[in-house]
Amino acid sequence: MASQGTKRSYEQMETDGERQNATEIRASVGKMIGGIGRFYIQMCTELKLSDYEGRLIQNSLTIERMVLSAFDERRNKYLEEHPSAGKDPKKTGGPIYRRVNGKWMRELILYDKEEIRRIWRQANNGDDATAGLTHMMIWHSNLNDATYQRTRALVRTGMDPRMCSLMQGSTLPRRSGAAGAAVKGVGTMVMELVRMIKRGINDRNFWRGENGRKTRIAYERMCNILKGKFQTAAQKAMMDQVRESRNPGNAEFEDLTFLARSALILRGSVAHKSCLPACVYGPAVASGYDFEREGYSLVGIDPFRLLQNSQVYSLIRPNENPAHKSQLVWMACHSAAFEDLRVLSFIKGTKVLPRGKLSTRGVQIASNENMETMESSTLELRSRYWAIRTRSGGNTNQQRASAGQISIQPTFSVQRNLPFDRTTIMAAFNGNTEGRTSDMRTEIIRMMESARPEDVSFQGRGVFELSDEKAASPIVPSFDMSNEGSYFFGDNAEEYDN
């Protein structure tokens, strides 16, 4: 783990906690998980779902989305002020799938948001429990990260689609708070800032007046979040320049895209947490497990152990491969979309394939898809080993990566060399080191050039047997250095459309 220093740990961010010791953190995270579980059980009762239907990941996603929508204050306010045809701002819903006479049927349900809020609060001892809501947002974000390569979004903001390893959390809503900021990748933060800068260039009043003052505060806050992700002084200094700019424009845009590229080699610290679907927490609570009393951590053995003992089902389209669908969801559960496939294969105990080789589309089923041909199958979400999630980018030494994705962002704290394609990355730096950030740029390029592919990161860190909950005997895996390590390699994943 990167030293926490003055930073709060993510469990504290996750639970809005002030400084807590490890036991208190485990208890408050457990409380959050228990609340999600209780809410899910109650919703299944309301909807009269069978046990099997309640364990269907598509039903879980609909129920999670309903509660997130019920608590989305800004959108609710907007919907009330701008009524649109056929949208009731006070209601929320989605597809629920039921097994009827041996076939899967889709039923569109509609609930009062007020009623959903009441059920959620009741499951969370009367609190709004925003930490639990954020947790579900991060699960949705991790699922998107594993399912889609955001080529269009990258290109629109002047970045290269091969930089997708920097895009963790790119679909997280803005209201996801400190826990959300911690899991956002460098590219995601750059993209958010670039969008602001572009608006400022096109709209003279963007930075002016009372609204402009708020915009400015948001801009500086985002700059500080991004600065905190960088691990070298030169990158941090460049972020200070971007933040202090009187009138952010093209120079800042250039600096930010430069920094994003540099992060492929001088990786930023991005938190990883295993956020599971509500249909995993519900049955665990129903079986009598007391998360608050037992304590829970999002970055240790607990999620692995929970998945070892969970039964989750998914709808499967006619030509999809259930094992591939399982891999997709497994990666999402562990926030591992940008991790090295060699490491993932070792931990999972079966070969993890790149996205383009998977015969599976996303987990969600569109409303126009034919239910007649839908089957369902068990998702295999178990693992051979477990490993500690990392909050750091690993040290800054790398190795060759593949054509589709030119770097990785480690999820697990496991000893290995970190793949990246130096030639491709360095070719993108057209040696432009003039301007006010020239000395920093020169320094950053120097550090990137001296990074050695064969150097090892996370020295001495290994994986653990599932029986080793105290992480007492690390097993340090050895990897084939020459092997392909990137998930979005030469990829044809669908595009994420909101």
Score class of each variant (00 low, 15 high):
Leu379Gly: 00
Ser84Pro: 00
Met167Pro: 06
Arg204Ile: 02
Asn76Leu: 11
Leu68Ala: 05
Gly462Arg: 06
Cys223Tyr: 10
Gly169Tyr: 01
Phe464Arg: 00
Arg384Tyr: 11
Ala336Pro: 07
Gly393Asp: 01
Gly34Lys: 12
Ser377Tyr: 14
Val352Gln: 14
Thr134His: 00
Leu172Gln: 10
Met371Glu: 11
Gln459Pro: 09
Arg213Gly: 08
Cys44His: 05
Pro303Asn: 03
Lys91Ala: 03
Ala323Thr: 06
Arg452Ile: 15
Lys113Asp: 06
Arg75Pro: 01
Arg175Phe: 09
Ile41Phe: 05
Asn202Lys: 10
Met238Glu: 04
Ser450Ala: 09
Gly435Val: 10
Gly126Gln: 14
Leu306Pro: 02
Arg162Lys: 09
Val67Ala: 12
Gly187Gln: 03
Ser314Gly: 15
Leu47Ile: 15
Ser457Thr: 14
Met196Glu: 13
Gly5Ala: 08
Ser262Glu: 06
Lys214Gln: 10
Ala129Glu: 07
Val456Ser: 15
Ala278Trp: 04
Ala178Ile: 08
Glu192Gly: 13
Cys333Trp: 04
Arg156Thr: 05
Lys113Ser: 06
Ser407Met: 04
Met136Tyr: 05
Thr350Phe: 11
Arg441Leu: 00
Arg195Thr: 07
Ser383Pro: 04
Leu79Asn: 09
Asp88Gln: 05
Ser359Pro: 08
Tyr496Lys: 08
Pro477Ser: 07
Gln231Leu: 10
Phe253Thr: 06
Val414Met: 07
Ala471Asn: 04
Gly169Val: 05
Leu108Pro: 08
Glu115His: 06
Gln122Trp: 04
Ala337His: 05
Asn59Ile: 08
Glu495Pro: 04
Ala260Glu: 08
Ser473Lys: 14
Val186Pro: 03
Thr45Asp: 06
Met189Val: 14
Asp439Leu: 03
Ala237Glu: 09
Trp104Gln: 04
Leu353Tyr: 04
Phe420Trp: 10
Leu108His: 15
Phe39Ile: 11
Met136Pro: 00
Glu369Cys: 07
Val343Pro: 02
Cys44Phe: 10
Phe39Trp: 15
Val242Lys: 06
Asn144Met: 13
Gln122Asn: 01
Gln12Glu: 05
Phe304Ile: 07
Arg261Gly: 10
Ala451Gly: 11
Ala234Val: 09
Gly249Ile: 08
Asp240His: 09
Glu107His: 10
Glu80Ile: 14
Val329Cys: 13
Tyr281Glu: 07
Trp386Ser: 15
Ser9Lys: 03
Asn417Leu: 00
Leu344Lys: 11
Glu372Pro: 05
Arg162Gly: 09
Asn144Asp: 07
Ser359Tyr: 12
Phe412Ile: 11
Met426Glu: 04
Arg422Met: 06
Arg436Asp: 02
Phe338Ala: 00
Trp386Asn: 08
Gly485Asp: 04
Gly5Pro: 08
Leu193Trp: 11
Arg461Cys: 03
Leu381Val: 13
Ile475Ala: 03
Ala401Phe: 07
Glu320Thr: 08
Leu61Gly: 03
Gly268Val: 14
Leu56Cys: 08
Met159His: 02
Glu46Trp: 05
Ser438Asp: 03
Asn397Asp: 12
Ser165Thr: 07
Ile109Thr: 12
Phe230Trp: 07
Asn247Val: 15
Thr23Asp: 02
Met66Phe: 07
Gly158Ser: 15
Glu114Arg: 02
Ala251Phe: 11
Thr360His: 05
Ile109Tyr: 03
Ala427Tyr: 03
Glu484Ile: 06
Ser450Pro: 02
Ala263Arg: 01
Arg243Ser: 15
Ile109Ser: 14
Thr6Tyr: 02
Trp207Ile: 11
Ser269Asn: 06
Asn76Arg: 01
Ile445Ser: 02
Gly180Ile: 08
Ser359Asn: 14
Tyr97Gln: 01
Gln327Met: 10
Thr92Ala: 13
Tyr78Arg: 06
Ile116His: 07
Leu68Tyr: 03
Arg416Gln: 02
Lys470Phe: 03
Gly490Tyr: 02
Ile316Val: 13
Trp386Ile: 10
Arg436Gln: 02
Met440His: 02
Gln20Thr: 09
Thr92Ser: 11
Glu46Cys: 03
Thr360Leu: 10
Glu14Asn: 02
Asp480Ala: 13
Cys279Asn: 12
Asn319Arg: 14
Gly485Ala: 09
Arg121Asn: 01
Val100Ile: 12
Leu328Pro: 07
Ala179Cys: 14
Thr45His: 08
Ile225Arg: 01
Pro95Cys: 05
Thr151Tyr: 01
Ser3His: 15
Gln122Asp: 00
Leu379Ile: 10
Ala472Phe: 01
Leu68Asp: 11
Arg19Phe: 10
Ser376Arg: 05
Gly17Gln: 07
Arg118Ala: 02
Glu80Lys: 11
Trp120Phe: 08
Arg246Leu: 09
Leu328Val: 15
Asn205Ser: 13
Gly34Ser: 11
Tyr487Gln: 04
Gln12Phe: 10
Phe338Trp: 07
Glu495Tyr: 08
Ile197Asn: 12
Ile63Leu: 14
Ser376Met: 15
Arg204Pro: 07
Glu252Gln: 14
Ser28Met: 14
